[in-house]
Write a protein that binds this DNA or RNA. Structure first.
Length: 254
DNA sequence: ATGTCTTATATAATAAGA
């Protein structure tokens, strides 16, 4: 099962790119973030015609997550206690795997109220996994965590440590979350630094490859031996009117 | 280097979020 995650930064704007990418990459499962629309506006027909079932947890204007799958989607659970009214998590079971699509808060700056919301969100997400327990295994949580795990995952670690995305506090929150029993799929197969999933529009980061690896696919212990390949597809980030994020993938062997 | 992109309101230009 080839599973992918992509923060599309508006599905309305990016639908044609998503459909094009589905044809190119042929993933079995795609977790989307920042669809920025209500479920009523979701393009079920177009994505269905491409061969995918969809489970959607949307809202107007901001946030919004979805799971697309060529295989049947079961046991959909939209939302959880930590969202505080924002659509940031959807859960489903696909081919026996609990798949979660997560859009963690950005945090704005370390001194803002939004930074504290980000902290609460990570704490609530860990509590949610604790509540799910072994019944949710095997589990795969994909998404935009808005935190890079390690120094080699950011272009300028010293600068990034003073901002959201690589602040030491945020790294502790991500560590606590993944200490639940999760493994970073890319790092199971590839230890190279300088591989990013997001580049800032404002600084023209993509041209200079000044980015951060803030999107990840984390797998539970049982899935660990099934991860044979994992990579970041940087091609869509170079397209016209690209999202500021690019797809991240992991291949789970049967 | 407070730069660029997206959405809402409102129907031009600004604000908010990222």
């Amino acid at each position: 099962m080839l599973i992918a995650t992509w923060n599309v930064n508006s599905l309305r704007v990016r639908l044609a790119q998503l459909l094009q990418w589905l044809k190119l990459a042929r993933p079995d499962v795609v977790c989307l973030q920042e669809i920025k629309m209500q479920e009523a506006d979701f393009p079920f027909d177009e994505i269905g015609a491409a061969g995918y079932e969809c489970a959607v947890h949307g809202q107007k204007t901001y946030n919004g997550v979805a799971v697309l799958s060529k295989l049947p989607i079961e046991d959909v659970v939209p939302g959880f206690a930590g969202e505080e009214g924002q659509a940031r998590l959807i859960e489903a079971v696909i081919d026996g795997v609990h798949v979660l699509s997560a859009y963690c808060p950005n945090g704005e700056t370390p001194s803002s109220d939004k930074f504290r919301y980000k902290q609460r969100f990570f704490s609530a997400l860990r509590a949610h996994l604790d509540n799910l327990g072994k019944s949710a295994l095997p589990l795969c949580i994909c998404g935009d965590f808005n935190v890079a795990p390690e120094e080699k995952d950011v272009w300028d670690p010293a600068k990034a440590a003073r901002t959201c995305g690589f602040h030491p506090e945020e790294r502790r929150w991500l560590k606590h979350l993944t200490d639940w029993g999760l493994h970073d799929s890319l790092r199971l197969v590839d230890d190279k630094g300088g591989q990013y999933s997001w580049w800032d529009y404002r600084t023209g980061g993509f041209r200079k490859n000044e980015g951060m690896r803030i999107d990840q696919i984390w797998v539970s212990d049982g899935l660990r031996p099934r991860v044979r390949k994992a990579w970041i597809d940087t091609e869509p980030r170079g397209w016209d009117r690209a999202s500021d994020h690019t797809p991240v993938l992991a291949q789970l062997e049967p």
